[in-house]
């Protein structure tokens, strides 16, 4: 099969949606620049016209509100935010309006809207050009949140989000744009709410999101050299998330580490850890661990950036620790040889 990178897969999905669905249109900042969105939106305006690929004034609130309105009026908009940080100016439209519309009117109307939020960080850009706010939005009833980690899922989740009858926040990370994998040329969906087991293992389950998936796989390689076999799960969908997949894996491994490159406090890891402690307690041989960012805004200095972001080495160390912890607390249950 053909290889395609993550940015190319996003672009292809947008192109196919515009091609096949006359209700589809895109609005947001930077769509007429070949630079703003990396190559993920390159020349869509030239191919589909500037009426359906609308670059906008600096008006996040109005573009997002308008996308909600267009969705209610029968279109299938994708509102594009080149940085998640800038999207914070549109929180009313997302949280109060898009996420509530079905509920407050007793389920009579849906808002079939994709809200695309790009994470773009490092490079001494500082706190307001770095945020990963998946947990904040996953907290909101009525909103689905997905975070593809591969080119394959970047395409399939965008298409699934577009076809969903409800608002879906689609979060992609610029750090992944060059990652390549096999991507089918035809349109396909990756089901929202389904995780993907990317590596099977018996000793510890590592649940990872977005940029943390390649790092978790790298860590799993190092762990295997130490005789520790990690099962790596790419969560893909933050909400709804695949409880069954994670619980099944933990039943097998007895240990769980969640890695999400956002603030750990009140984060995705907290939700998963709490659910597993609640519904999978009897399988656990050790306390659930989480890795994420410290409770600090993103720094500018690259020295601080290095101390701030999660590394594969940290994942390896944390997983190895978890195994030790498990052995000391319940030696009888240990399956490590």
């Amino acid at each position: 099969m053909r290889l395609l990178n993550y940015a190319g897969a996003i672009r292809e999905a947008h192109g196919q949606l515009l091609e096949t669905d006359s209700r589809a249109f895109i609005i947001g900042q930077g769509l007429w620049s070949p630079w703003y969105a990396g190559s993920s939106m390159k020349d869509l305006d030239k191919q589909f016209g500037r009426e359906r690929v609308i670059d906008s004034p600096v008006s996040e609130n109005a573009t997002t509100g308008a996308a909600v309105g267009a969705a209610l009026a029968g279109m299938r908009p994708i509102v594009f935010h080149p940085r998640m940080d800038f999207m914070l100016l549109a929180v009313d439209a997302i949280v109060n309006q898009a996420a509530n519309w079905s509920y407050v009117f007793g389920g009579q109307m849906g808002v079939p809207l994709v809200i695309r939020a790009v994470i773009n960080r490092r490079g001494e850009q500082g706190a307001q050009h770095s945020q990963a706010l998946q947990a904040m939005f996953a907290h909101i009833p009525g909103l689905k949140v997905v975070m593809p980690s591969t080119a394959h899922d970047a395409k399939g989740l965008l298409i699934a989000a577009h076809r969903d009858e409800n608002p879906v926040m689609y979060i992609d990370d610029r750090a992944l744009y060059e990652q390549e994998c096999e991507v089918p040329e035809e349109m396909y969906e990756v089901e929202i709410g389904k995780a993907h087991v990317c590596r099977t293992g018996t000793d510890v389950t590592v649940v990872a999101t977005s940029t943390m998936v390649p790092l978790a796989l790298q860590a799993a390689g190092s762990l295997a050299d130490q005789g520790i076999f990690a099962e790596v799960i790419d969560l893909r969908s933050i909400k709804p998330w695949d409880e069954a997949c994670v619980l099944e894996s933990v039943r097998k491994t007895g240990r769980l580490l969640v890695v999400d490159e956002a603030w750990k406090t009140y984060g995705v890891g907290a939700e998963i850890a709490a659910t597993v402690a609640d519904r999978g307690f009897e399988s656990l041989r050790a306390g659930v661990r989480r890795l994420g960012l410290p409770d600090v805004p993103a720094p500018s200095s690259h020295v601080l950036e290095q101390a701030y972001y999660v590394t594969a080495e940290q994942i390896t160390a944390e997983a190895a620790q978890l195994l030790k912890a498990g052995q000391t607390t319940r030696p009888a249950l240990s399956i490590a040889s």
């Binding site: 600096v58 940080d85 800038f86 914070l88 100016l89 001494e124 850009q125 500082g126 706190a127 307001q128 050009h129 805004p297 720094p299 500018s300 200095s301 690259h302 020295v303 601080l304």
Partner: peptide, 30 residues
């Protein structure tokens, strides 16, 4: 992005301040 910077290396070019002379802050959110 040095420690002696006006924002102690936390801000970079887009977050500068000099409160002692009335530059309370500059931030990149438009």
């Amino acid at each position: 992005c040095r420690r002696t910077g006006c924002s102690s290396g936390r801000g970079g070019s887009m977050h500068v301040c000099a409160p002692e002379v009335g530059v309370v802050g500059t931030v990149p959110i438009v």
